[in-house]
Design a binder for these strands. Structure first.
Lengths: 229, 229
DNA sequence: CAACATCATTGATCTAACGCAACGGACATC
DNA sequence: GATGTCCGTTGCGTTAGATCAATGATGTTG
């Protein structure tokens, strides 16, 4: 396997302060890895051997209960990190939602490199703080929102996230997730997700095109639905 | 107001690597502040002017929807930080659950000090990563657990958290929260929390002593309840 | 200690979401 | 283009938890 150059490109935002020499050193630590859709590369509770940087694709972080109920606790996109720096065990499973490419670092080496590069750690800290805010916002949704609010919020958020950085939310796009996965994110059943989506379609707020396609017909009404039942 | 010495004691774990001179400098940045039970010192969406370190007491982090529904997204204890370093606005409200003492830093000064002390930032990063893991564990509870599981898990966790570091969970203790606050943490109504508690009492798993007191009579059964309906 | 306020408990009803089952369309394989 | 599989959709009965309302404790104030 070759040193992880595309990761360094991806991670550029992370280490733009590093010197060329250091960046090269960082790149040599990592190894490219392809992860096909559906493959799980970390299990909850397992020792976390690696830290990885997402180069392309999307992956879900999830935890589950014995009987199969699953909750997706996060979704990571290119340039995000997965794994648990400085930690013993990884508290959730990581599974590819689409074919993904990663840049994988042995955890020990990554930890040491980070420790000796304060700027890298600073950027990691900022990202982690952002991620924590996002997780807590999500908790409001899980704990207190109706099914309608959950689904509306989800559609709105995806529209925003799929748009180019700083752009207006998309009005027509493909959902990156299956109905079941949406249900696992929102803490609902697949049937409830379906019913809410078709109800929103009947109300003229959105249109559903095929399995994955969504068009937002009335953004204001969608916004309303995201806030009140 | 005097420089924040007790904060430096509290924060010792955070900056044990700092020199005496630096520690003194850090202490001078902060100011002691008493926060009585129920007082809110940050509102969601408001500009985050300060970062603070909890010296004593407990505070809740919460977000809410227009109509009054509230979700507690975190509880902070002594030595934890509140506020949003490096951020513009604070995404949730912070309210004292009990009389609390804080050490408050102007955000700008704190950010600068942190930036120039990598060890401090490293420790902040580790804490934030821990907090993120905790938040995500909580999400599983909110999204996929039954009322019974939620309440049982809550009791078990409090018993663990109130025990001295590294000690066995307590079997008899006072809940630090009212029924309503427990409901806001678990995404339930106050009535449901009550009913689950009395059901657990009738089942001989716990005993309820007065408003706040709890005795765990059968830890194994409690553990079972925390996992399956 | 009486009066009040607050918090906790319990009962009775209602409803949003669940669970099950049937059906239908999309896509892959031969 | 027939066959099978997977995924999404819809209908219908059930249920966990919400909601409404009344009653009981506990603690506080004058």
């Amino acid at each position: 396997m070759s040193a992880c150059n595309s990761c360094v490109v991806r991670t550029q935002a992370m280490c733009s302060i590093l010197s060329d020499r250091e960046r090269e050193e960082f790149a040599r630590l990592g190894r490219q890895m392809a992860v096909p859709t559906g493959q799980t590369l970390m299990w909850e509770g397992a020792d976390s051997m690696v830290v990885a940087n997402v180069v392309s694709g999307a992956l879900k972080l999830s935890t589950s209960v014995q009987d199969g109920r699953e909750q997706i606790v996060g979704v990571v996109y290119p340039s995000d990190f997965i794994g648990r720096p400085f930690g013993k065990t990884s508290p959730h499973s990581v599974t590819a939602l689409s074919d993904a490419r990663l840049c994988v670092f042995p955890r020990g080496a990554f930890d040491m490199f980070a420790r000796s590069h304060p700027d890298l750690e600073h950027r990691l800290l900022r990202r982690t703080l952002d991620e924590l805010d996002r997780a807590r916002g999500w908790m409001l949704l899980l704990g207190r929102a109706s099914a309608r609010e959950k689904v509306a919020t989800f559609i709105r958020d995806v529209a925003g996230r799929l748009a180019a950085e700083g752009d207006a939310p998309l009005t027509r796009f493909d959902l990156p997730l299956s109905r079941q996965q949406i249900a696992d994110i929102l803490g609902l059943t697949i049937e409830t997700v379906c019913r809410q989506l078709t109800a929103m379609k009947r109300a003229g707020v959105i249109d559903l095109i095929g399995r994955r396609g969504v068009a937002i017909l009335n953004p204001d009404q969608l916004e309303d639905m995201a806030h009140a039942a």
